[in-house]
Write a protein that binds this DNA or RNA. Sequence first.
DNA 1: TCCGATT
Length: 318
Amino acid sequence: MGDNKTNLIINYLPQTLTDEEFRSMFLSIGPIKSAKIVRDKATSYSYGFGFVDYEHEQDAQRAIDTLNGLQLQNKHIKVALSRPGGEVIKGANIYIRNLPKHYTEKEVIDLFCNYGNIVQARVLTDPQTNESKTVGFVLYDKKHEAELALKELNNKTPPGGALPLLLKFADDNSKKVRPPASNMSYYPPRYPQDIYHQIGAPRFPGGPMRNSGSNRFRYNPMAASHNQQGMGGQSNSDGQNILFVYNIGYDTTEKELWSLFSTYGTVLKCNVIWDSQKGQGKGYGFVTMSMWQEGMNAIQELNGYHFKNGPITVSFKK
DNA sequence: TCCGATT
C-alpha cells in the first residue's frame, strides 16, 4: 500500500462483533477490496480492531464521516485512515505514569504536542468512578518524535503536577496473548440477601474458610470490639482501606482473593498484579475493604495464613 | 519476584 487513501483502520470494535457484521457495515458505504477483524491466530479472539480497504478513496472518506464514533454495543468505534506501515512508525507509543490527577487527554496533548504529531492520546480512567488512574498513552506518528518526547519529558514535573512523569516506550501488545479474564478487575455479582441480617453469624474459630454464595456472611463489628484503636470512622489515615497481600502465588485469581477476604467484610475491589512480560501474576495484590475495621480484622486473621503457596503477608498498603 | 494500574 502506498499513499492511497482507501485503507482504514477501525478501533474499539466490540468483542462479539462478527466478521460478517463488520464487513456488511462497511460494504453499505461502497465496494471494498477487503475487510478484516484482527484476531489471535490460535483462539480467534478479536483484538478489537480491524482494517477495511475500499475500492475508492471517496468511499473511504465517507466511511470516516458516517461511521467514526458510531456506537456499537458499549463501544464507540473509531474509523480513520490507516497509516502506512514500516519501521519509522514502530515504537512510537509512549506509556506515561504519574500524570496529574486532573489531566485529561487535552492536557496530555497540550504537553506532548511540542515534540511531534500525535496520532492518539489516552488517559486511563476507573470505569466505576471515571477518575483518572494517572496513567496514559501518547502515540506519535513517527518513532523519532516519541524518542524526542521521552528524552525531553521523562522525569520532568508537568505544569500543575506534583510528581515527575515516568515515561517509557509502551509494550507492543499486538502479538501477545491476552491475560485471562480472571485477572481483570473482578467485581462480583451482588447478592442482596447477603447484605442484610447477617450480623451475628458465627465467626470461624480457626483459620479462614472459603465461602461462596449463600454461606457468605458479613463482618460482625461486635465480635471484634477489642480491636478498636480509636478509628470510629470508615477509613484509615489515608482515607482508604486498601490491603497489600503478598506471596499469593503467580496463578491466584482475583476471584479467589475476593472469596478469601469476603470472610472478614465487604470487599469493594480486588486486584492481582499482573506481569504482562511473563504472562503471570507478580505474586501480590491489593484488596479494598469497605471499612477500616474489616481490613484490620483481615490482617489479624489472614497475615501468615498458609494460602496456596505458603504464608501470605497481609498489611495496609503503604 | 515485596506496595498496581499497559488503550
